[in-house]
């Protein structure tokens, strides 16, 4: 049997950065809402991965990165809002709708954006991982180290909060 490959090899490490750097960054950005802090945490996580390269197999590297980031985040006190940019779908739809609808939709998106930014950290992270990163509940559960049921609950709560904030549309 082949020994499980660890990540001490520089090439392996670079490949892992290519593969997981962005998702980890997003994940942590959804949590803290601060790009500079996300940069720091991601750098910290990869540094830790390198320092512990002998103990971490290639397969375990992903969950190692998420766990380290999550723990580092929990240690930091400053939580700020996630800043969302305007929807890109909006532009696609412009051609097919009336100016009133456009107005309405812009308003709706603006409200939605603010509401998402005001969600609790737990709800926001799960919600954005699902909606923007397209992660399945099982994947989110693994990243956040919680159960799938808990993810379901957070999603339901997030949707209910958003609907209430925006008002019946």
């Amino acid at each position: 049997m082949k020994e499980p490959e660890n990540v001490c090899n520089e090439n392996t490490f670079n490949l892992l950065y290519e593969a997981h750097g962005k998702p980890v960054w997003r994940f942590i950005y959804f949590k803290c809402g601060d790009t500079a802090q996300a940069d720091d945490l991601v750098q910290e996580a990869f540094l830790k991965l390198w320092q512990n390269c002998a103990k971490v197999t290639k397969e375990k590297a992903k969950s190692f990165l998420f766990t380290v980031c999550n723990n580092a985040f929990l240690n930091e006190v400053a939580h700020t809002k996630v800043v969302l940019k305007h929807s890109k779908i909006q532009t696609d739809r412009t051609n097919f709708h009336s100016p009133e609808f456009l107005m309405e939709e812009t308003e709706f998106n603006e409200k939605l954006k603010n509401s998402i930014e005001n969600l609790t950290e737990a709800q926001r992270t799960a919600f954005l991982l699902n909606r923007i990163e397209g992660k399945k509940y099982t994947e989110i559960a693994e990243m956040l180290n919680i159960s799938v049921k808990a993810v379901e609950k957070r999603m339901s709560q997030a949707l209910a909060t958003l609907r209430k904030e925006i008002g019946n549309v």
């Binding site: 950065y17 750097g21 962005k22 960054w25 997003r26 950005y29 959804f30 790009t35 996300a38 940069d39 991601v42 750098q43 990869f46 540094l47 390198w50 996630v82 800043v83 969302l84 940019k85 305007h86 929807s87 890109k88 779908i89 909006q90 709706f108 998106n109 939605l112 954006k113 998402i116 919600f127 954005l128 909606r131 923007i132 397209g134 949707l159 958003l162 609907r163 925006i166 549309v169």
Partner: peptide, 24 residues
Amino acid sequence: VQIADASSGFEVSEMNSESNFEAI
């Protein structure tokens, strides 16, 4: 469904891959 759909449309900041890699 409408809320969730609209949420998917938002764009979020991307990590600057190069600068972070350099820092690491």
